[in-house]
Design a protein around this nucleic acid. Structure first.
Lengths: 215, 215
DNA sequence: CAAATTTGACATGCCTTCGTGTCACTTTAC
DNA sequence: GTAAAGTGACACGAAGGCATGTCAAATTTG
């Protein structure tokens, strides 16, 4: 008896690992599409498999259950969102206003271009389970770090003097998220500039109040 | 054949309507308790009935389904929260800082005293259905009005000059809500004063930026 | 007390989902 | 070509929830 219980074989020009990864990606894409369309709890594993053009067996090959799929999609999409924002930062002029504007534009534009992503990130993630709630918290703290760098670009070098910076940054993240939620719930009627401008307003106000030297 | 298909009878010293109302209230209380304990989607109609000491028949006597119960609890608890805040306003000294502080204290304290309410309002309400998402939106807009009165108490008579007030106020609501979420997710470790102070910081910053005359 | 109504405990049928299993068919390796 | 591995369609049982129904016990009215 050798240690090779299964001999991987090439299929359709791809190795076993490649095919598995491809199927996994198809499921992630289909999951995002279906969840973004009908919501997380209203969709079934079967419907996601059908959308992916795969059968249930391949679902459980890659994910333990529906929640595991949701977690991976959430991670992937928040990473994507962060990447877009970071890219926007590097592309922007090195001027406070433009810098902050670029980051917020990347944020709102990504959600606007991908309503499924918006629905998943803004609505479907809460109240699923304690595990997912914690993941939400971690992601929010992550964004707080991003916001912090954004805020520092506005001359808000440090609210360091004020106590409980973490809470204040969490609040700013919450403000932007809520503005995005409201935007989505009203069918994206407001212009992108309006939501960016209002977010920026809150940032600048906080920055100015924290260190009015820039005024 | 008369028009009286059912003759209401007194039972245990209460009329039929009274008993029905009492049962309804028991279900609302039990629903809040169970949902606050295990979450909305993890709980069943049966478990709520068991917690209420009633049987399923009486559940469907008062509610069409589990979601209808959630909606009524949500309405009742947000009303309760608003009432607490309004009461705090009237009780507070007529001085900007004390006024705003009182409202925020009522908000955070109510959530802190009732973790079940906090969980339901902050986490369990989103992603349930399109209907509930809309209800969430309406409640947030309602709170924005409250925040607006709170902000005006800070001399922020009008951000009226700035465009898109609605969006900005939605952002402020989101900031407070997110601070509350974070507070709950970290086990209410921060002091009430810390979360109030940070929220106040954002309000005052926005107020000062909008109308720096108060500075 | 007797009849009628209310109540509680539980049963029932229906539905949906989950996760696994079966089996014929296709594609590759030898 | 043949055997083995991969694939797809579908079946299956278990589980759980929903909403309604049954029936005996308790309570009230007359």
């Amino acid at each position: 008896m050798t240690d090779s219980p299964t001999k991987p074989r090439r299929y359709r020009g791809a190795s076993g690992d490649q095919r598995r990864a491809e199927r996994c990606q198809q499921l992630l894409d289909a999951g995002l599409s279906v969840i973004g369309d009908v919501g997380y709890q209203a969709c079934s594993v079967r419907s996601i498999c059908a959308a992916a053009g795969l059968t249930e067996r391949y679902f459980y090959e890659s994910f333990a259950n529906k929640e595991a799929l949701l977690a991976e999609i959430y991670q992937a999409q928040t990473d994507y969102l962060k990447a877009n924002m970071l890219a926007a930062f590097t592309r922007a002029e090195r001027n406070s206003e433009a810098f902050a504007h670029a980051g917020l534009h990347a944020f709102f534009d990504t959600l606007h271009q991908n309503p499924a992503v918006a629905r998943l990130l803004l609505f479907e993630i809460l109240g699923v389970s304690d595990t997912m709630d914690r993941l939400y918290y971690e992601v929010m703290e992550d964004f707080a770090v991003l916001i912090r760098s954004l805020a520092s670009s506005l001359g808000l070098a440090d609210i360091a003097h004020t106590p409980n910076q973490d809470i204040i940054y969490a609040g700013l993240v919450g403000a932007v998220i809520q503005i995005a939620r409201r935007w989505a719930l009203t069918g994206y009627q407001d212009s992108v500039d309006a939501v960016i401008g209002s977010s920026l307003f809150l940032f600048v106000a906080t920055a100015n109040y924290a260190s009015p030297a820039t005024q």
